[in-house]
Simulated assay, not measured.
Amino acid sequence: MLISPEQFLGFLAAALLITASPGPDNLMVLGIGMSRGRRQGMVFGLGCALGCLTHTLLATLGVSALIAASPLAFSVLKLCGGLYLVWLGVCALRSRGGARVDGVAVPDESLARLFAKGLFANSVNPKVVLFFLSFLPQFVVAEQGHVSWQTAQLGLIFTAQGCVLFGLLGYFSGAVGKWINVNPRAGLWLDRVAGTIFVGLGVRLIVAR
């Protein structure tokens, strides 16, 4: 059973805006692309994006186990996740922006090593694990059943859009990096948009009892 078109479009829109917001991963992709070349930036970004598969697996297993153990526990997870998303949103809304992208000084490394670095960095990041456990369940409709499959699809969609977006960031790293440096307020407004999405998702979950 595939997720509904409404689930897909709503999740994809939120995921794209969140991924595009200035953060360690995409700024590193831009930095490597600017200093080493677009191919290196794209490969590193691909590793970062595919690292999300680890978090998808953990979220799928965790959410499925909660549903099997207790629907109440799943509701508590969604409520806690909603509060966490509100907190992330408030932090983004309070951000002063000012993100800059500088060429990252890295030693001469093979594409395979750059890919592995991106994959490892994202796979073991506890903040990303917490984000996935908070974000994905917000788009799961338990009444539709197949919760684990819904969660897996959402994680795969997030990973796929991450691959595309990071690939584009790596390819156009020079132009995008210069644009961000010349327009520092662009990052500020991306934070505002992402923060509004986080707060909206969190509040919706908290009040929709």
Rank of each mutant, 00 (worst) to 15 (best):
H55Y: 14
E6V: 13
L50Q: 11
I197L: 09
L201P: 00
P126C: 09
L77R: 04
G51R: 04
A69M: 12
S64P: 06
G82F: 01
L12S: 14
F131I: 08
F131H: 01
F158E: 10
V207L: 15
L66F: 09
N26Q: 05
V141R: 11
T56F: 11
S75A: 14
A59T: 13
G162Y: 03
L27R: 05
V203T: 13
W87N: 11
A142L: 05
Q138Y: 07
F139I: 08
A65Y: 01
L168Q: 05
V147Y: 03
I180W: 09
N26P: 02
G10K: 03
L88F: 10
L88W: 00
I67F: 07
D191V: 06
V43M: 06
L16H: 09
C52L: 15
R204E: 07
L16I: 15
A186W: 07
P126T: 00
G118E: 01
G45F: 00
F198N: 04
R36N: 10
V104Q: 14
F11W: 10
S110Y: 14
G170K: 02
P126E: 00
C52E: 07
A99R: 08
A116T: 14
G145L: 11
L12Y: 07
D25I: 11
W189L: 14
L88H: 07
A14E: 12
L156H: 09
L114G: 06
L188P: 03
K178M: 14
